[in-house]
Design a binder for these strands. Sequence first.
DNA 1: CTACCTTACTGACACGCGCAAGTTACACGT
DNA 2: ACGTGTAACTTGCGCGTGTCAGTAAGGTAG
Lengths: 333, 333
Amino acid sequence: MAATPGRRVTSADVARQAGLSRATVSYVLNNTPHQSIPEETRQRVLTAAAQLGYSPSAAARALRSGRSDVVLCLLPDWPVGPEVGALLTNLSTALAARGLTFVIHPVIPGDRPVAEIWKAITPAAVLAFEELSDSDVAAMRGAGVASVVALLGSSRRQRRELEVSQQRVGRMQAEHLAATGHTRLGYAYPDDARLRHFAEPRLEGVRTACAELGLDAPLVQVVPLDAPDAAAAVRRWRDNRIGGVCAYNDEVALALLAGLREHGLAAPADLAVIGVDDIPVARLADPPLTTVTTDQNAVAAHLAATVVAVVAGEPQPRPPGSDIVTVTRRGSA
Amino acid sequence: MAATPGRRVTSADVARQAGLSRATVSYVLNNTPHQSIPEETRQRVLTAAAQLGYSPSAAARALRSGRSDVVLCLLPDWPVGPEVGALLTNLSTALAARGLTFVIHPVIPGDRPVAEIWKAITPAAVLAFEELSDSDVAAMRGAGVASVVALLGSSRRQRRELEVSQQRVGRMQAEHLAATGHTRLGYAYPDDARLRHFAEPRLEGVRTACAELGLDAPLVQVVPLDAPDAAAAVRRWRDNRIGGVCAYNDEVALALLAGLREHGLAAPADLAVIGVDDIPVARLADPPLTTVTTDQNAVAAHLAATVVAVVAGEPQPRPPGSDIVTVTRRGSA
DNA sequence: CTACCTTACTGACACGCGCAAGTTACACGT
DNA sequence: ACGTGTAACTTGCGCGTGTCAGTAAGGTAG
């Protein structure tokens, strides 16, 4: 390790040290094909680089090649649970295996516009959870960002990769409750407005499942994460002779269990409850929570494949099958 | 918006459109001081840039200036809860207010080395949760990364910004249990090895608090997130006449409540339980969970100030006071 | 009329890199 | 002896910026 005098170590330094030209150094370090380099020279370059602690400048490389190998993920300020965390982790490994660097940036509504962000990164692709405005998309195209993938959203313009699997989640919930003998269903909608993008497709899934099974449409109620409020919702459902409720997620489901408890009632006898996500505390509840899980690994793999295809300009792969969503049956439904 | 023929819009295009030189365009767009530019010319540049949808190349800018305005956060594959999520979100806004772009990269042990990551980004600073190896730090210095901030870790070499506030958390737990009349305490250590970096300082805080209060050292047990296992732990504590337990976090605390339930017992009468984090479901538990909360906003502000100071080469600010950690008293302790 | 300052610009360089094209030196075939 | 081919290199360009060092025009002082 050389004593660095403040200056950055460049490939020119390595070349000088090895007594070669900069081009040769570049060829060796990048394993450029169709170049014949004797083993001795190669070693000379490698040791020189190691000695000086050389590492190429990402900026220069990006400038020269016109595109970086960074994939930028714009993450809204959702109360992110371990499932989204797992998805992002899996996505990172999946993209890393394909030579792409995955990077996340939180997007906060009041903050500076998203434009500022990708300008400072110049990513190869952008993965947006929320939908982007048309002007943003146009600007990104102009700035050389290869492409954009939206995951959820209301418009029909952008392809929404996660939408169908979210619908599938709602569908599984309804089907499980129907299979256990319930004919009148409720839906517990989250209180947090930021979760709308997830909640809508899930509710949509429940609705279509009910329609297909010949059941009445679900009775939807907003359920805050608070025992008394949840108790009020429980009362109304029971007044309407609702036997089973699909909760937006496990937290809402746990609120319902607390609401039942306030009335001195319990799932599943008085009201069957099914959640989503299988968070760690789900199995610790009283009764243990029945819930729907998604194989985040499979989702991540598909998302990674989509990004890679989009960057390479190839057609996008088919979405994963419906078998990635499964019911974990415990005590509450 | 001009119809872009694939090519990137550069400042040269803007200059041509405005009938000026590239230098003048640069001066206008960067508000370079000590340059006299008449208002009319300035407007000419601005409208041309807007018309063409010009946005400067981050890569070129970084190459020229030698440093980017990106702060890279290396996030280990911890099961990240909403608290860490909130911390990251707050950090992002705090840094954005200071002109820095905050970006997160998940670090997975088996994956490629961290070196690959910052090479692809060239950040101005790196914020590492886990400790970095000395060779990594040296390499980063050499590559022009201004500096490094470690948050947690075992060595004494790097400053650990979060360490003290984590100790403070454990301290508050112990003090609350002592204040409610418990003299023999237990500590519920998490099962997940990845949480060690958080668990150690918290336990350390409990230990020192016990010592200062003249109590016996806490009886430490690993508690998996599973009712039967938790029940076994509960039994052992009660056999040792332990009256109150500090849980690593709310999830572990909820496991203890489930363990008590298996014995037909309940908090706080049979065993007082106090958690950490105040996750949403904490208030929904039976009994509602008493827990310790940290003001993530204040922590984020301090971290942001530290990063800014480090990038600017100024002395680091003082850590926040101990008042950022508070007890939320509910039913369980 | 000359000397000098200010205004409003422009020309040119360097940042570090990848890669196309060019240059030796030497072996081989005829 | 002469072209041809290949191994092992090197020279040089341009990616898009920010900025230093000019420079021509116009005004003002002496």
